[in-house]
């Protein structure tokens, strides 16, 4: 990933925070970490969907689902980020995202809440976090990783 993208990302966020702009994030758990997605990218959250497997795709692509006539690909967040397969638990669900008119579902361990973030979002400390555009502290003290949806959709 090129360094410049982080810098520009950073500047944007700084100017944003000067105006104390509130941003809404949906937080979810994956691999015992808290992630956040900008709420405008979230379409809906679904559970218990029958995923049709696709042959010859990377392991993290779980397959496709039929969402009321629309075919949506599903990727496993945990596998995408940490290369570990997630096990199905009670809280497992799919968050349907719409990023630049591309629909995609992400399989996560559990969805937590929608929160307003006004804190300054800092750049991630290391560059090996793919798709992470920044980090921030939540009111309860946990750390949230901000997910960059564009990268998630575009990086293969």
């Amino acid at each position: 990933m090129p360094d410049e993208s982080f810098e520009t990302e950073n500047e944007n966020i700084e100017t944003d925070s000067q105006n104390i702009e509130m941003q809404k994030y949906l937080t979810f758990m994956s691999n015992n970490l808290v992630y956040g997605i900008p709420i405008e990218n979230v379409v809906e959250i679904i559970t218990n969907h029958n995923i049709t497997k696709l042959p010859r795709v990377p392991d993290y692509v779980k397959g496709i689902i039929n969402l009321r006539g629309q075919i949506v690909p599903i990727i496993d967040m945990k596998q995408r980020i940490s290369k570990e397969c997630s096990e199905k638990t009670r809280g497992t669900c799919i968050i349907i995202l719409n990023v630049n008119d591309i629909s995609i579902g992400i399989l996560v361990d559990a969805v937590s809440q929608v929160i307003n973030i006004e804190n300054k979002i800092s750049a991630p400390p290391a560059k090996n976090h793919e798709f992470i555009s920044g980090m921030t502290n939540l009111p309860d003290g946990t750390v949230m990783f901000c997910l960059n949806c564009e990268l998630l959709v575009n990086q293969k």
Binding site: R56, I64, G69, I71, V72, P73, I104, V153
Partner: peptide
């Protein structure tokens, strides 16, 4: 016939012998 989602086009899935999907 429904075309496969655009996201999957990057995986050259067409070359794997998949033309599309259907409900």
């Amino acid at each position: 016939v429904k075309p496969l989602p655009t996201y999957l086009n990057g995986f050259s899935i067409k070359n794997a012998g998949i033309a599309g999907c259907t409900i």
